[in-house]
């Protein structure tokens, strides 16, 4: 059945290669002590700038997983509530936002044992611009 080309068949073809590898550096990285840099376009944890938001709700409408909520907390003051457990890190909200109030950051180590800690609330600024992230885990 096999097309036999007797002269070319060499058992243990990879032995040489394997022995060479013994002398090479490991191909893996010693995580978490060494970390790989994230690519520029990486879509990690979102950042919300409350000062820029106009409350148009396009991000809420387009989010495929219902992970983001925008709440009106006062006259022209909005607050974002992002569920990192639901977010699929597609950054569609970033694309949809007409005011560039949302941004994807390179932050990717987001695993939590407590589900409540996956909720992140970005407060509206009291008066001054610049949204601040409330303590993680503050689910209202």
């Amino acid at each position: 059945m096999t097309k036999k080309k007797k002269s070319r068949i060499r058992p243990g073809k990879m032995v040489e290669f394997v022995l060479q590898s013994l002398l090479k550096k490991p191909a893996t990285v010693n995580y978490p002590f060494t970390k790989m840099p994230m690519p520029d376009k990486f879509r990690g944890k979102l950042r919300y700038d409350a000062a820029k938001c106009i409350g148009c709700m396009l991000c809420v409408k387009d989010c495929p997983s219902g992970a983001i909520k925008i709440k009106k907390v006062g006259e022209k003051r909005f607050e974002a509530d992002i569920d990192l457990g639901k977010c699929v890190y597609c950054a569609q909200c970033v694309d949809s936002c007409p005011k560039k109030a949302l941004m994807a950051t390179p932050e990717f180590e987001l695993a939590q044992i407590d589900r409540n800690k996956l909720k992140v609330i970005f407060d509206a600024p009291p008066e001054a611009p610049g949204g601040t992230e409330q303590k993680a885990g503050g689910s209202q």
């Binding site: 690519p39 520029d40 376009k41 990486f42 879509r43 699929v88 890190y89 597609c90 950054a91 569609q92 694309d95 994807a104």
Partner: peptide, 21 residues
């Protein structure tokens, strides 16, 4: 792939009407 699209899997490069990056 990660460098090109922003992620290793689920590249998120497509949108209706073209590509995103």
């Amino acid at each position: 792939l990660a460098m090109l699209t922003g992620n290793r899997v689920n590249y998120g490069i497509n949108q209706v009407g073209g590509v995103r990056r």
